[in-house]
Design a binder for these strands. Structure first.
Lengths: 232, 232
DNA sequence: GCAAAAGTGTTATTGGTACACCCATGG
DNA sequence: CCATGGGTGTACCAATAACACTTTTGC
């Protein structure tokens, strides 16, 4: 059966990324304002066409390098394919979406048409990019719970109070510094740098500085239930 | 910058699926034997080119309908994109991979070049299809723990003993029927059909038949840790 | 009655949240 | 010595695994 529906069709494949960062107290996504139609003046995700000799991860890293300093990208992972035939006007384009994370201490230089928006208060977005941002947000929130992915949001060294702020902003609700420390410490994800911060004018005990023991994502809470028998 | 690497390239997009089923006591994947080069006589995943007017999920359902009775597919979900430039010989093809699940009571008629293989003992596979199967397996195993996805592996009605067998085969280790029942019951996923089975010749108490309360996947164990405050 | 299979009761343990309390500093 | 913020100790709680025990059947 060869009809218009099933005919093999060479088609364009673009790669886009929702790059998230905790900045100014909230979880934000990097968007740029389209100058041209279609969807002029709407905000959209960075990305572009998949090139000839690159796989999709290399492609998104290349495309993002034009927007942000690539060294600032602490983590990149595939999200999903968006393939509705009418997702963009004109010739068909299938998109693979990525989640990218930038540490909160980084402040990458971005072009003038580019800005950061809270993921919970997005402007009018182009195409299906709003849905992609929400998928990225949800993926990050889930992974904060069962992986060490916080390393990609936090600075290289931080106090528990700072980390609490980062997790709270990313998750969208208040996290206790006490319990956050315990959860991460129990999993062996935290270590002290040996340094402490100086208290502010109003006093207070100096905070010890921590770092994540690993960079590179790993699952730390693999089996919630139905775990294999006999592992004391 | 327009060079061979970044030049927009119309390219072929194929959609493939690892269709898994618990049969003959083990978790198996449906593969078909390629007749033609490249990779003649190697075993490969069903799939094909993305058609013009369809999104990728419609596409994989269409392609699978040629191999198995589509009504037998209890669950379908996106896995990931495989995009290495040399993943198949010849002109470039990017693949979106899916996970498909068939209930263990179904025995879909399949073409003569098609067979079921244990996911933990695969034959020589074509291209990167072996890696795709392992991704599908791992995704299923993870989701058995924190979703109700068992509904897509189990028959419409089952004893706890049968369900234990299905979960054990899918997970690759022995699961206790006692605790399995408690976990699923606590989450409200099981209900009795009211019927019971007749014991075999050797006696034993009749087993009550259960069903899953929901078809359609849902996350049942959303937050392992770092849950929002104050939800007693 | 006895073996077999299903199902329930009970306990121990784990991992998590909440909160009281102690610690170290500036003024 | 008091206010401030950091860190720890501990009580409580929910979920789960392990296993002993009870129930219901065939022979």
């Amino acid at each position: 059966m060869r009809d218009a529906t099933t005919e093999p069709t060479p088609l364009a494949h673009e790669v886009v990324a929702a790059v998230l960062q905790v900045r100014a107290g909230s979880l934000r996504v990097m968007l740029w304002e389209r100058a041209l139609e279609p969807h002029a003046h709407r905000w959209s995700l960075p990305g572009g066409q998949l090139g000839r000799g690159e796989d999709i991860e290399a492609s998104i890293r290349r495309q993002l390098a034009e927007k942000v300093d690539i060294r600032q990208l602490a983590h990149v992972e595939q999200l999903a394919v968006f393939s509705a035939p009418d997702r963009v006007p004109g010739p068909r384009v299938v998109a693979t979406a990525f989640l990218g994370l930038v540490r909160s201490d980084a402040d990458p230089a971005v072009p003038p048409d580019t800005d950061w928006f809270p993921v919970d208060d997005l402007p009018v977005t182009a195409f299906d990019h709003g849905a992609i941002v929400l998928r990225a947000r949800d993926r990050l929130r889930a992974k904060l719970s069962y992986t060490n992915i916080g390393f990609a949001l936090a600075p290289p060294a931080f106090t528990m109070s700072e980390l609490r702020g980062i997790y709270s902003a990313a998750l969208g609700y208040s996290v206790s510094a006490t319990n956050l420390q315990r959860v991460l410490a129990r999993r062996g994800l935290l270590e002290s740098t040996g340094d402490t911060t100086k208290p502010g004018r109003s006093g207070g005990r100096p905070a010890t500085l921590f770092r994540f023991t690993n960079t590179g994502m790993q699952v730390t809470d693999p089996f919630a239930v139905l775990r294999p028998p006999g592992r004391r």
